[in-house]
Amino acid sequence: MTLIDTNVLLDLATDDPVWADWSIRQLDTAAVTGPLVINDIVYAELSVGFERIEQLDELLDDAGVTLNEIPREALFLAGKAFRRYRSAGGARSGVLPDFFIGAHAAVLGLPLLTRDAKRDRTYFPSVIMVTPDSDSPG
């Protein structure tokens, strides 16, 4: 099972000219090893770009992605990690969802497919990150 971050699925939804091919290849590779999952946070972030729920659900179905509830232990861990981040001077807005996603992967021991792993690597070092090479987007 692999947890998929919002940015990877946005690449598909928008047919991103730089990242779509990379994201499709990574999703295909991850699907070979087990189910592809997202959580409620990723679903909500993705929904911003869709007019109808059916459109989003179709994208997820086509990509072979299912919704997985965030365990309570991950919610607790996300709060603790976010508090550490804020204590270290981290930004107040727009980042808490990243902590829910990273904690979800950490608690369940799932790899995280993402293009933005900076905070996750710092606050969830046990999570295996599947990321692009820093100098090779395609």
Results as ranks from 00 to 15, higher is better:
Ser23Val: 01
Thr66Gln: 15
Leu27Arg: 06
Asp5Ser: 02
Gly90His: 04
Ala31Asp: 06
Thr14Asn: 09
Phe124Met: 06
Thr14Ser: 11
Asp28Pro: 00
Ser126Phe: 01
Asp135His: 12
Leu75Asp: 00
Arg119Gln: 13
Ser47Thr: 06
Val42Asn: 08
Ala88Pro: 02
Asp57Tyr: 00
Asn68Asp: 11
Ala105Asn: 11
Pro35Ser: 11
Leu75Asn: 03
Ala13Ile: 01
Leu67Arg: 15
Asp40Phe: 00
Ile101Lys: 03
Ala81His: 04
Leu77Ala: 15
Pro125Arg: 09
Ala117Arg: 05
Thr33Ala: 15
Glu69Gly: 00
Gly64Leu: 14
Ser134Gln: 15
Arg121Leu: 14
Gly94Ile: 02
Asn39Ser: 05
Ile24His: 03
Pro35Met: 07
Gly109Ser: 12
Glu58Asp: 10
Leu36Ile: 01
Asp40Gln: 08
Thr29Asp: 14
Arg25Gly: 08
Ala20Asp: 14
Val32Phe: 12
Pro35Val: 11
Gly34Ala: 11
Phe124Thr: 02
Asp133Tyr: 11
Thr66Glu: 12
Ala81Leu: 00
Ala74Ile: 03
Ser87Gln: 14
Tyr123Asn: 06
Ser47Arg: 13
Ala81Phe: 06
Val32His: 13
Ala106Thr: 07
Leu9Val: 02
His104Ile: 11
Asp98Gly: 12
Glu58Met: 08
Arg83Thr: 14
Leu77Met: 13
Lys118Val: 12
Thr66Ala: 12
Arg121Glu: 15
Ser93Arg: 13
Thr2Ile: 01
Asp16Ile: 01
Phe76Ala: 11
Arg92His: 09
Tyr123Cys: 06
Ala103Asn: 03
Thr14Glu: 14
Pro132Asn: 09
Pro132Lys: 10
Gly90Asn: 04
Val127Leu: 07
Asp28Cys: 05
Tyr85Arg: 02
Arg84Glu: 15
Leu46Ser: 10
Thr114Asn: 06
Glu54Gly: 15
Ala117Gln: 08
Val32Gly: 07
Pro132His: 15
Arg84Leu: 14
Val107Gln: 10
Gly89Thr: 00
Thr29Pro: 00
Pro132Gly: 04
Val130Met: 11
Trp19Asp: 01
Glu45Lys: 07
Val95Tyr: 04
Ala105Gln: 13
Phe100Arg: 10
Arg115Thr: 02
Thr66Met: 11
Ile128Val: 12
Phe124Lys: 07
Ala31Asn: 06
Val127Lys: 04
Thr131Val: 15
Arg83Val: 15
Gly89His: 01
His104Lys: 11
Val107Lys: 08
Ala88Asn: 12
Val127Pro: 04
Glu51Val: 08
Val107Leu: 10
Thr114Ser: 12
Pro137Ser: 08
Ser47Gln: 08
Tyr43Asp: 00
His104Gln: 13
Ala91Asn: 10
Leu36Glu: 05
Ala74Phe: 08
Thr33Ile: 01
Thr122Gln: 13
Ala81Lys: 09
Arg25Thr: 09
Gly109Asp: 15
Leu112His: 04
Glu54Arg: 13
Pro17Glu: 09
Ser134His: 14
Leu12Val: 04
Leu10Arg: 03
Leu12Cys: 05
